[in-house]
Design a protein around this nucleic acid. Sequence first.
DNA 1: AATGAATGAGGTTTCATTCAT
DNA 2: GATGAATGAAACCTCATTCAT
Lengths: 208, 208, 208, 208
Amino acid sequence: MPDKKILIIERAVELFAKNGFESTSVQEITSACGISKGAFYLHFKSKESLLFSIFEMFIDRAIKKISNVFELEIAPKDKLELFLCIQFEEIDQYSDFILMLLREQTKPDDRELFVLMQKMDQHLNNALKTLLVEAYGEDINKHVADMTVIIKGIIKGYIELIVLSSQKFDFKKLANFLLPRIDSIVLGLTTPYLEEDSLLTICYKKTT
Amino acid sequence: MPDKKILIIERAVELFAKNGFESTSVQEITSACGISKGAFYLHFKSKESLLFSIFEMFIDRAIKKISNVFELEIAPKDKLELFLCIQFEEIDQYSDFILMLLREQTKPDDRELFVLMQKMDQHLNNALKTLLVEAYGEDINKHVADMTVIIKGIIKGYIELIVLSSQKFDFKKLANFLLPRIDSIVLGLTTPYLEEDSLLTICYKKTT
Amino acid sequence: MPDKKILIIERAVELFAKNGFESTSVQEITSACGISKGAFYLHFKSKESLLFSIFEMFIDRAIKKISNVFELEIAPKDKLELFLCIQFEEIDQYSDFILMLLREQTKPDDRELFVLMQKMDQHLNNALKTLLVEAYGEDINKHVADMTVIIKGIIKGYIELIVLSSQKFDFKKLANFLLPRIDSIVLGLTTPYLEEDSLLTICYKKTT
Amino acid sequence: MPDKKILIIERAVELFAKNGFESTSVQEITSACGISKGAFYLHFKSKESLLFSIFEMFIDRAIKKISNVFELEIAPKDKLELFLCIQFEEIDQYSDFILMLLREQTKPDDRELFVLMQKMDQHLNNALKTLLVEAYGEDINKHVADMTVIIKGIIKGYIELIVLSSQKFDFKKLANFLLPRIDSIVLGLTTPYLEEDSLLTICYKKTT
DNA sequence: AATGAATGAGGTTTCATTCAT
DNA sequence: GATGAATGAAACCTCATTCAT
C-alpha cells in the first residue's frame, strides 16, 4: 500500500472519528493530508470506498491480534483474560472511529460494509466460543450464545465508559476484575435463554 | 401537539432510523408525510430542532415508564426485573432510532443534545442504583458503579441482538433469565474496579 | 383609509427603513401590527403595492406642505428659507425610509413607482423654480436648472449629515445660514452650465 | 486576481447596479458569466463577500485617483477643479453600482462595509480640506465643515442628474463652471453653521 | 372581516467527482 | 502521478401568496 494511501487513511480515521463520515468532506481529508483533491481519487474510487478500506484494515488488525492470543501457550483462563484485555486496548485506540462506525449508517447500498461487519463479528464470536470452551469445558456449549452476548455486552459497557470519560484505564486490571465476574455467572447458569446457535442465524437487517 | 407535528416526528423517526440523520433530507421527510417542504418549517425551526424534539419526546417517555416501576408496591427484585423488562420493551420499539442516535454525531454545536443525553443517563443510573440498593442492601453501594456498567452492558448486548435480528423476543423471560445472572455476579463481588462515584464524574467529551 | 391599513403602513415604514424592502418579510410586518398574514392581503394586493401606497402617502404629505408655503403671504426670500426648512424637517422625520427608497430598487417592473418619483421630483423642481424667480427676478430663469441642482444638492448634503449623525439639528438656523450662500452663488452667476429646460427632459432610466 | 474572479466582479457590478444586491441571485451572476454556480464559490466565500470585494476594489481605485491629483504640480484652484472633475468621471463610470450601494442596506452584520465606507469618506473629506486650504488659505479652516458638506452636496446634485439622465456630460466644463460658484460662496461666508470638526465626530448609525 | 396552515418556487451554499493540463 | 478549476445535483431554508374555515 503506497504511503500516500496510508496517509489518507490515517487522517481520514481521525476526521471521521471527530466529525462523522457524512460531515467530513473529501476536501477536509485532502487538506489534512496536504494533497490535492484529485490525488484522493487516484487512491480511492470514492469517499465510500475509503470507508471500506479503513474498515478492512481495522478488521485485519483485530483478527491478527486475536490470532496472536491463540498462539500463546498459557492457561485457558489467562487466554480469556488476555482476550478481554486486547479488546479493551484495541477499542480504546480506535474508540472514536468505532463510535463513528456505530453512529453512521452511510448510504443504503453499502451491503459490502455489512458483510465485513458480519465477518468480523463471526470471528469474534468464534474466538470467544473457543476460549469459553477451553476455560469452562464442553458443558458451556449450550450457554455459549448467552455468555457471548453477556460478555460482549459487559465489554461494551466498560468501553463506553472508557470512551466517554477522559481518564486512563488499566485494562489488565479491568480484565482481571472481570474474569471472576464471568466465573460467577458461568457457575450460576441453569437454563439458557438463547438457543445454542442463535448467533449464527442472525441476519443483519436490510437497510433499503 | 398538533397532529401534523406528530406525523412529522413519527415519519422522521423511521427515516432517521433507516438512513441516518445526515442522510435523510427534509424533502424525504415531508414527502413521506405528504406535506410540502414549507410546512415542515411551520412546526420545526430547523432539521436539527426536529432531532431535538424527537429526542426530548423519547426521553420523556422513558423517564415516565421508569417512574411507573418505582410506584409499584412489589418486591425489590421484581422491580429490578421489571426495570430490565421495560428497558428491553422500550428500546425494542425504537431500536432503529436509538441506533441512529448512537451512530450520528451531527453538528459540533449540539451541546443541548448532549445535555439531554446526560440527563437521561443520570436518570437511568440513579434508578438502577436505587433498585440495586433495594434488592441487595446497602453493601452493594461500593460496587454500584461496576454493577451499573455491567448491567447496562448486558442490556445493551441483548438489545443489539434484538435490534439486529428480526426475531421476536420474550422480554419478560429474558429479564427473568438475567436476574439470576446478576445475583451470581453480586454474590461473587469482592474488590470493586471502579470507584463508587466514578459514573457521576464522567464528562461527555466535547466534539469540537 | 381604514385604521388597520394605516397601522400596516406605519409599521412597514419603520421596518423598511430599518431593514430595507427586500429584507423585510410580510410576516415581520404583520407581527409588528399584531395581525394575521391573511389580513395583510385584505388591504394590499401585494407587498409591492404596499410600497406604492407608502410612497403615495409620503408624496401627498410633501406636496401639501409645499403648498402651504406658497399660501403664506411673506417675503419671497422668507418663502425660500421656509421651503428649505420644510425640506429638512420633512426629510429628517422620514429619513430612514427615504434612505431605503434610495437604496432599494425592488423589481424591474415597478414602472409606476418611477412615475410617482418623477411626479414628486417635478413638483419640487417647479416649486423651487417659482421661489427662485420670486426671490431673484426673471433673470434667474436661464440659471434655474443649475440653481435647482445646486440647491437640491446642498440640501442633500446637509440631510446626509443629519441622517448619519445622531445629533439634533436646528433646521431654522440651517435654512437661515444657507440663504446667504444661495445669494452669493446667484450673484456670481455668469454663463449657465445646464440648459434652462434640461431638468424637464430627464427621462428616468429604464431598469430592465 | 484571476480572470474569472474579475469577470464575476464585473458582471456582478452590472447586475447589482441594475437590480440591487438582494434582488440579484448568485445564479444570475454565474449565468451572466457563463460559469457554474459552484465556480462562484471558488472565488468568493459568499455573496456578501463579493459585495465586499467590489467595494474594496472601488475604493482603492478612488483613493489612487485622488492621490494622483495631489502629486501634480499645478495651481491650487486647478487642483480643486481637477478633484471635482475626477469625482464626476469616476462616479459616472460606476454610477449604477454607486446608486445600488446607496440603496441597499444588506445584512445588519456588515459592520465591515461601514468601516470601508467611513474610511473612504474620511479620505475624501481630508482631500477636500487640504485642497480648500491650499486654494483659499488658512482662514477657510473654520468653514471647512460647511464647505465640505456644500461641495459634496453640489457634486451629488450633478451626479444624480448625470446618473439619471442618459446624456453625456462634459465633466471638465462642469468642474470649470462649479469652481466660480464655490469661489462665490467662500467669499460670502461669515458665521459657520457647523463646528470646524463636526465631520470627524460623525458616527455612522448602527443598523441593528 | 379575519385567520394561519399550507404551498412551492427560489434563495444561498456545499460537496463528491471529473478532467484538461 | 498530480493538480485544482469546474461542475451540477442536492442540501437546508425563506417567504410571498392563497384559501378553507
